[in-house]
Design a protein around this nucleic acid. Structure first.
Lengths: 208, 208
DNA sequence: TCGCTGACTAAGCGCTTGCTCAGCATGGTG
DNA sequence: CACCATGCTGAGCAAGCGCTTAGTCAGCGA
C-alpha cells in the first residue's frame, strides 16, 4: 500500500542505521497518516494502530507526535537538498544540469508524494526549533537552483528577466506535484520529470 | 490585518447579499484562522473570539465548523472559475488571452493568498457533499485552461507536446503562489502576474 | 404597554486528545 | 537458577474539543 518506500527518505548509508524496526514502522505510519489527513487530524492512536502497537509504544521511540513530524520533515528536506546538490554539481553545462535537476526533483515529488506532502504542507505544525532547521534547508535548496540559473544566464544558455522569480517558478512546479499527483495519474514519475524538464528549459529561454 | 479583502471572495453582486454583518465577520475570521493554522488546528473558540463573539454565537449563523469551511471553499472556487472564464472568453487571440489568464490567476493567488490556502490546501477537511461540488469546479477550471491551450496549439501560437501536462503546469504555478507568497514578498501581485505570464508563454512555446 | 423575535452569552456536556505509568513477557547474562 | 534490561500493553488522567442548552436583552409592531 505504501507508495513511498522509506528508501526515498532514509537512503541506505555506509554507516547503517541501528534504529529498531518498530521505529521505522511508526515513521512509515506517521508519514502516511500526516499526508492523508494532516498533522492535527492524525491521532497518536492512528499512528500506533497502523504500526501494529498500542498508543503507549509510540513514546518509547519518540518523545512526542511533533518529534515524529520533525524527523520526517528534516529527513525529507535533507534528501531533497542532496538530490538538488547532486544535479547542480553534476557533469555537463548548466542547461544539461538544469534538465537533470528538474527531471529528478519532479520525479521525486511524484514518487515520494506522501513524504512530499508532509514536507511541504505541514511546516506550520513543526515546533519552532525544528522549523528553523528546515527553513535553513529550504533556503539552501532555493540558493542552489538560483545559482544554477545564474550560471546558465551568464554562459548565455538561459535568458531570464529575474533570476529569483525564475527559481521560484522552477521549485514551485516541482513541489506542487506532490499535491496533485496520485496513484491514478497516467504519467509515470519519470515521464512527468522528462516533460517538466522540457517545459522548464523553454521557460528559462534555453534554445532546445 | 486582513490581506484578503472579502471582495475577492464575495464580489458585490447586483442582487446584494442580505447576510447579517456578524456572519461576514465569522467568515473573515475563519478564513484567516484556517489559512494560518489549518482547519483542524483551528478551534471554534478561535473563530468566535476573532469575530468578537462567544463560541455559541457561531452556531446561530453556521451549522458547524465544517459548514464555514464549505462556504469559504465553494465561494473561493467559484470566484477563481469566474476569473478564468472571463480571461478565456475575452478579446484577442489565444496567446493574448493566455497571458491575461496567467496574469490574473497569479495575481489573485498572491493577493487572496489566505483564501487561496484554504481553497487549495484544506480540501481533505471538507464534508463529502461539499467536496463533490468543489471537485466539479476544479475540473471546470482545468478544462477551461486545457481548451485555451488546445485552441492556441491548433492556431499555431503554442507548441506543446502534451496539452494536459501543460495545463497542469500552468494552473500548478498559479496555485502554488498562495503557498509561498507573503506580506514580505518584494514583488506586487501584479508584477508577479506579469512575470509569470511571460514565463508561461515561453513554456508553451509562444514566439514572443 | 405588551408579547414576541432574533442575536447573543455563560455554563457546561459528552467525548477525544496527547501523553503517563505500573506492570508483564521475553531473552541474554551471571 | 536468579537477575535485569528491553519493548511493550491496559488502564486511565488532565486538558481541550465541538456543540448544546437555558436564559438575557434590545428592538419592534400592535
Amino acid at each position: 500500500m505504501t507508495s513511498t518506500p522509506m528508501a526515498d527518505l532514509w537512503p541506505t548509508l555506509p554507516g547503517a542505521d541501528t534504529r529498531p524496526e518498530a521505529a521505522y514502522r511508526l515513521l512509515q505510519a506517521a508519514v502516511e497518516s500526516f499526508a492523508e489527513r494532516g498533522f492535527h487530524a492524525t491521532t497518536t492512536r492512528d499512528i500506533a494502530t497502523a504500526a501494529g502497537m498500542s498508543p503507549a509504544a509510540l513514546y518509547i521511540h519518540y518523545q512526542s507526535k511533533a518529534a515524529l513530524l520533525a524527523e520526517i520533515s528534516q529527513a525529507g528536506h535533507a534528501a531533497t537538498l542532496a538530490l538538488v546538490r547532486e544535479a547542480v554539481a553534476g557533469e555537463g553545462g548548466p542547461v544539461e544540469r538544469m534538465r537533470r535537476l528538474v527531471e529528478q526533483f519532479t520525479a521525486w515529488h511524484a514518487r515520494a508524494r506522501t513524504v512530499g506532502r508532509v514536507v511541504n504542507y505541514e511546516l506550520h505544525a513543526l515546533p519552532e526549533d525544528a522549523y528553523a532547521v528546515v527553513a535553513a534547508l529550504r533556503l539552501d535548496i532555493e540558493r542552489e537552483v538560483s545559482a544554477l540559473i545564474e550560471e546558465g544566464a551568464a554562459a548565455g544558455g538561459f535568458q531570464v528577466a529575474e533570476v529569483r522569480t525564475a527559481a521560484r517558478a522552477v521549485t514551485s512546479l516541482g513541489i506542487d506535484v506532490s499535491r496533485w499527483y496520485t496513484d491514478r495519474s497516467t504519467e509515470t514519475p519519470e515521464e512527468l520529470g522528462r516533460r517538466y524538464g522540457e517545459l522548464v528549459l523553454r521557460m528559462l529561454g534555453a534554445r532546445i
